[in-house]
Simulated assay, not measured.
Amino acid sequence: MNGQDAYYIALILDPRFKTLLLEKELGDAAPTVIRHLKDLLHQQYSVASEHSHTANENEVVQGKSIEARLLEKLQGARRPVTDIDRYFEAAVVTIDQWPTNDNSWLLSVKFCDMD
Rank of each mutant, 00 (worst) to 15 (best):
G27M: 05
A29S: 13
L13G: 07
L70G: 00
K110T: 07
V47Y: 09
S108D: 14
A90F: 00
V92W: 01
V93R: 13
V81T: 13
L107Y: 05
S65E: 02
E67Y: 09
I84Y: 01
Y8P: 01
D102K: 06
L11F: 00
E25M: 15
Q75S: 04
I95D: 15
V33P: 03
Q44W: 06
N58Y: 10
L13D: 08
Q75Y: 02
R79L: 08
D102G: 01
Y45A: 11
R35H: 12
N101K: 01
H36D: 12
L26T: 14
E59D: 14
R78F: 07
H36P: 02
E59N: 09
R79Y: 04
P31L: 04
V61K: 15
E57K: 11
L22S: 06
R69M: 14
S52W: 02
L107S: 12
Q43L: 09
E72V: 00
P31E: 05
W105Q: 04
H42E: 13
D39P: 00
T32E: 13
V92S: 10
Q62K: 14
I12A: 04
K64T: 10
V33Y: 03
V92M: 07
Q97W: 01
G3P: 03
H51I: 07
H42F: 03
A48W: 00
N101Q: 07
T100K: 01
P15I: 00
P15Y: 00
V33E: 12
E50S: 11
Q43Y: 06
D85C: 02
L74F: 12
L20Q: 09
K110N: 11
S49D: 11
Q43K: 10
D96K: 12
Q62E: 15
G27Q: 12
G76T: 01
K24L: 15
D28T: 11
V93A: 13
I84G: 00
W98M: 14
S65R: 11
G63P: 00
T100S: 09
Q4F: 06
E25S: 13
L106W: 09
E50A: 13
L70A: 14
D39Y: 03
W98I: 14
D39W: 02
V92F: 02
D14G: 01
G76D: 06
N58V: 09
K64D: 04
C112I: 10
S46L: 04
A6L: 08
N101T: 05
L71S: 12
V61T: 14
L37R: 05
L22C: 04
R79A: 07
Q44C: 08
K110E: 11
E50C: 06
A30S: 15
A10I: 03
N103W: 00
A55K: 09
L71W: 11
D5A: 07
A10W: 03
D5W: 03
G27N: 10
H42G: 04
D113K: 02
D113R: 02
N101I: 03
T94W: 06
N56T: 08
P80L: 14
S104G: 04
T94Q: 12
K38E: 10
P80I: 08
A90K: 02
N103D: 12
Y45I: 10
H53M: 12
V60R: 14
I9F: 01
E25N: 13
T94S: 08
K73C: 07
D96Q: 13
L21R: 08
E59T: 05
V61W: 15
I34Q: 02
I95N: 15
D14M: 01
S65M: 07
H53G: 09
R35E: 15
Q75W: 02
D5I: 03
F88A: 05
E67F: 11
S65C: 07
W98R: 07
A6C: 05
M114A: 05
